[in-house]
Amino acid sequence: MARMKFLCDAERCIECNSCVVACKNENDVPWGVNRRRVVVLNDGVPGEKSISVACMHCTDAPCAAVCPVDCFYTTDEGIVLHDKDLCIGCGYCFYACPFGAPQYPEQAAFGVRGKMDKCTFCAGGPAKNNSDAEYAKYGSNRIAQGKLPLCAEMCATKALVAGDGDMVADIYRERVLKRGGRPQTWGWETAYGAQG
């Protein structure tokens, strides 16, 4: 069984934000909610690097461990999804997540945050695949159509790669071999454990 993973190759990422916009376009994510974002390190000086970050769909996902209503589940492909009907918007997952992935579309007094929203690896949620209801609540379900997340598919430089972890690692290994230097699979250890 394929184990889906994201990898952002910092040597190729140019901070063009196509992943961010592709996500908004595909999933109709509203203004102010960012399922994916690009962060820049050492901005404006030699050594500047940028990395695209979203939910990494962790093995042993910390969000699932802290959820008081147990609304998270992991698909056979390792994609971490959640049920918005169950979610109470408590925000625990935001604190548990090492990637800052969970988003809360609403803000009101006394901590009523609305249902949590996050990257679904373009795999929708617990509703009929590609139904209007699923789209409205979770966004697109490309996985059910045999397609990969649009952010990676539309990456300008193929820096952001998504797919079966072994295939992702193969691509990356080949690039590192060609350009020399140390592999920097940023976030992989945190998300997928020491084995990567």
Partner: peptide
């Protein structure tokens, strides 16, 4: 690190 509980939500036809 804590173990997650058992998922209590609706079933996903994707599975």
């Amino acid at each position: 690190v804590h173990k997650p509980g058992v998922y209590k939500g609706a079933s996903d036809p994707l599975l």
